[in-house]
Amino acid sequence: MTILAIDTSNNALGVAILENEKVLGEYITNLNKNHSIRIMPAIQTLMNDCERTPSDLTKIVVAKGPGSYTGVRIGVTIAKTLAWTLNIPLVGVSSLEVLASGVGRYFNGLVSPLFDARRGQVYTGLYQFEDGQLVIVEKDSLVMIEDWVEKLKITSTPILFVGNDVELHYNVIHQTMGSQAVFASITEKNPRPSELALLGKNKQGEDIHSFVPNYIRLAEAEAKWLEAKGIK
């Protein structure tokens, strides 16, 4: 069992190879640089360094969003095409779940991974570890950060915020929630591709042809068109 995990859904770019019970290798950057140029060479380098060839792969796991529309499409297109052409299973995992998974494992409380979505909005969800398994408490959505922290405050449970974009919203979170809000250290802020591989390890393969990113939002033109037609 050799899993290739790919994440280009947000600013961090990640690739990992997980083989049986071992993470063979992991490549990660947190740079605002073009994913389309860098992802395939990153995959190739990691595979070469790990002395694995494409025919050794038994599964592809991809971060399916939410995130940058273009970014997530790059990873999903590569993952779909690789899985299809190598005739191996494809598994998609929430990009937020990947963030929550790394640091949340040893946290006694709820985890709110987040990516900034501009204009005061964030992509986030609520996760919790139960008996070593990551459980979704609140599914991924697009919310105003102000509304989100008000809602979390009522839980009276410690909330761990994780992600590189948390600092953009630090003031709002801290002012509303005070010590109820816990913040991950900088070494835990990147989504880890090895976590992505692990999360996908025991998941069933999905239909490759119909696999699409989880954009959360409709394309703007589509939303306006539906609105004009009176469909909500």
Binding site: S36, M40, Q44, P54, Y69, R73, T77, I78, T81
Partner: peptide
Amino acid sequence: VGALLIGVNAAKAIAFAHN
């Protein structure tokens, strides 16, 4: 650009997979 990216990345994935 967004449209081109799908073809380019699919092509790269196939080229890589089969050398």
